[in-house]
Write a protein that binds this DNA or RNA. Structure first.
Lengths: 229, 229
DNA sequence: CATCTGTCTATACGATTGTCTTTTATTGGT
DNA sequence: ACCAATAAAAGACAATCGTATAGACAGATG
């Protein structure tokens, strides 16, 4: 049990089940409330509109029992965002590993991303749309997950560039541009009537290719400013 | 619903002031309510959280009088979004004209954009952050304004490419990528503690340069697929 | 002047919200 | 078996929400 993620406080289940101690055993867990919230969420329902009572109702508990697990709905939202970030990174990680170092890694990752979107992955919805609204802690959590994603992407970009012997103009900036652009485009895809998804997928791939071509071109043009490390 | 999407459906003041007709003259206008809503909005306050009563209170009218001017808050939001789109396009239009066809047009437009952001332009805030939340009509309005912006940018890109005799790989896609990326980055700048704004400005310029270099590189690589017209 | 029409106010209803206080249920320890 | 401690429930509170209804005011029209 102590082998909990060394990660800094992500989805931290403090102690309710670890050390029962004297007293009544909890009939509901943090995970149950999160599941209830996810079940309540949907393509037309955003986290910001969730009310404490509603989540409690869905979870089958009294409104007040919610406080036993979360201080307020914002804390729930942060937990959801963290979970979404973990999920996304895992998904992309699998896609990346599957694609290997083939040149179609962009296509592969984009496909995996959009496929997950089509599969109505509530967690992905959260991360995509709620990164611009909500309270401060709210946005900080979303930003953190994005940064995690950017870091992994940055490492990949550097590895790919080294393999193909092509330059990279500011790898971190490139990773950030790709991440933000894909997320923004994905967010607009959330409420699309199913058709046009393919077209949007094509657009995203084209955009990412554009950025990669751009970073290579700039690196070739101003090799002194490249940061290949 | 769609009978009004003609084109000049922006901030349409139907008739309350145009044709007084018989009856009491309105002591308050649509514009007054919009002003009240803007006054109520802020960096930590999003349109989605505005309540009918709150806006009415700020405008100094009874809650019910709101209905005389807007059917509901969503209609107010759409009006705000349309207004924001107009404002943004005007701002960029001025910046573009000022920069002329100099190579620093990217820098100039980005600076104008960020400057307006720093000036706490509520309208810009709206357009940046509320494009992913809200009702369907809500998002449609935001998407429409973005498309307007993309079209103007696309024309500019084509003109610049013709002047500099450099290719363009799918101008529309390029314009879309730039627009979405700048908007997404601008949204993250909304709640930044004033420092780091310069850094973010630098990042945005770098990203846009990357995309432009990419579209030129791709056009040079696959000239057959270029869509110059 | 009387009348009609449209704008705004006043009041109120039911629903829902977040949170507080009190009570009940259940479990482990002695 | 009893006790203490904790989880959850029950109920109530004020506040706010959107909206329905009815009445008061002002100006054009006869």
């Amino acid at each position: 049990m102590t082998e909990r993620t060394r990660e800094p406080s992500i989805s931290d289940t403090p102690s309710p089940a670890d050390e029962p101690g004297p007293g009544r055993r909890p009939v509901i867990t943090r995970a149950d409330i999160i599941a209830a919230a996810l079940n309540l969420l949907g393509p037309t329902r955003s986290v910001s509109t969730l009310s404490l009572r509603e989540v409690a109702r869905e979870a089958g508990i009294a409104p007040n029992s919610f406080y036993r697990h979360f201080r307020d709905v914002d804390e729930l939202a942060v937990a959801l965002i963290d979970l979404a970030g973990q999920s996304l990174r895992q998904i992309i990680g699998v896609a990346r590993q599957r694609a290997g170092s083939e040149p179609g890694v962009v296509q592969g990752c984009t496909d995996a991303f959009m496929e997950q979107l089509r599969a109505d992955d509530r967690l992905l919805h959260i991360l995509l749309r709620e990164s611009t609204v909500g309270s401060a802690a709210f946005k900080r959590a979303a930003e953190q997950q994005m940064n995690f994603f950017e870091e992994e992407l940055c490492i990949d970009l550097i590895r790919l560039a080294a393999e193909k012997n092509s330059g990279l103009y500011d790898p971190a900036l490139t990773a950030k541009a790709i991440t933000r652009l894909v997320f923004a485009m994905g967010a607009t895809a959330l409420d699309m009537p199913e058709e046009g998804r393919a077209e949007l997928n094509r657009q995203i791939v084209g955009m990412v290719r554009m950025i990669i071509a751009g970073t290579q071109a700039l690196a070739a043009k101003t090799p002194a400013e490249a940061h290949p490390s």
